[in-house]
Design a protein around this nucleic acid. Structure first.
Lengths: 236, 236
DNA sequence: GCAAAAGTGTTTTTTCTACACCCATGG
DNA sequence: CCATGGGTGTAGAAAAAACACTTTTGC
């Protein structure tokens, strides 16, 4: 691990703590939402921040995030991904705590039951001031969330089993602050093989306009058309 | 950081150690190379692995990677990026050490002077068995390296100030194990505005064939044509 | 019938791709 | 003059973009 021999006692290095924090994103009422938790313990009492937990030194990171999710929404089998670690020296008043930032995506119908005074969903745009470095974490996670939308079929984790195409468009438009062309998007996603029409309509949902077709997400990868050639798309 | 009050003594959580490890990549003799370091201390004596260092509890991760690079190649102003953290419970025999894996890119001419029995460059393909979980880390880093090549102008960090287009192609072909079409690549990269011909040739480098034009990398972003529309490229 | 949202179709433009062909150099 | 790698041009295919038009609903 080191080039020069360690001069200090090895115990000197074993003084750090770990935590997990999660940016849990859902889509409700045509708007992307984020789960916040009221902080009760530690010196940051009574502030709102990203849900999180300290990790026991004998606990695996994966099991830590699973347990956290279980305590928050009663399940941990959702789409989640470790973004990166935040390790700034003074990010936490209690000492050297580095945190593993995750993000998770879930359809609102799966979490609509949760009802705790310590938890709330807020619009992901223009979040309030959060505890610790959580605004910073959120910003980074959001960028990653955007990239995920472009490169992977992640939208579907935000949608119910049966959804309409304009919900997808709505998520993309919000996420990138950009209008999309309906007809072209429709052709694109149909050709991709990612979705399949169910032959049903969502009549009743909207107050006017033609009812939209319902679709389902097709998970099997072999139905999709994916690029395999080297393909440059330099950005930023 | 936690939902339920912490029942254990808070000190219980402060028992972890951190380290940084780096996958340093360069391009020499038409081949991508990786820097290995012979491990001398710790129980993993005399094995080769990724260069790394323990982080002092009072040290910032950024400064840790900077110091590591300084000790390895005498400078730290190179392109580097934190990939992610590896935190498996038993990844290190000394205890709970989580490591921040970085990758760095550097032109060979910048590091050709380094000459230490504890350091060596090896081809990045088919690496030998490395210490700890370093083969695993390398694999992950390589995937990220590939993505970086596709989405960002990262090749240029591997090339000298003056380079020829076929060096770029060589790097891409090796990285993706795929032949590329010279003429089309040429048009693509010229149109991108990322490179600028210098009006010089590299005559003398090759034993035969027409000498190639030398180019330089154009850093200014406004000269480039980048995609700004929402653009789906679902892969894997 | 009108407005609004959904869905279809067509045309144009741009971007890939696959090559054929010419150029400069060493032997 | 030939083999080899470098560089230019073009034609066809495919993908992306723009947008007109039709359909289905509520009021």
């Amino acid at each position: 691990m080191t080039k020069k021999p360690i001069t200090k006692n090895i115990d000197h290095f074993f003084r750090g703590a770990f935590s997990v924090d999660i940016v849990l994103i859902t889509f409700h009422n045509q708007s992307l939402k984020l789960l916040l938790q009221k902080k009760k313990d530690l010196p940051i009492k009574e502030e709102w921040g990203l849900p999180g937990n300290l990790i026991d030194p004998n606990e695996d990171t994966n099991s830590a995030i699973d347990n956290l999710l279980l305590s928050l929404i009663g399940r941990n089998d959702i789409y989640k991904k470790q973004l990166r670690t935040f390790s700034e020296l003074n990010r936490h008043p209690l000492g050297r705590i580095i945190t593993f930032a995750y993000y998770g995506l879930i359809a609102f119908e799966e979490v609509k039951h949760i009802n705790s005074p310590d938890l709330k969903w807020i619009p992901i745009k223009n979040p309030p001031s959060l505890s610790l470095d959580h605004n910073h974490i959120l910003k980074e996670v959001f960028k990653r969330f955007q990239k995920g939308l472009l490169r992977h079929p992640n939208v579907f984790h935000l949608l119910p089993q049966k959804f309409i195409l304009s919900d997808i468009i709505s998520i993309y438009e919000q996420s990138f602050n950009q209008k999309m062309d309906l007809p072209n998007f429709r052709k694109l996603i149909l050709k991709s093989g990612l979705v399949e029409p169910l032959g049903e309509n969502n009549k009743g949902d909207k107050s006017f306009g033609r009812p939209a077709e319902l679709f389902r997400y097709v998970k099997s990868e072999d139905k999709r058309k994916l690029k395999d050639k080297i393909n440059f798309r330099f950005y930023a």
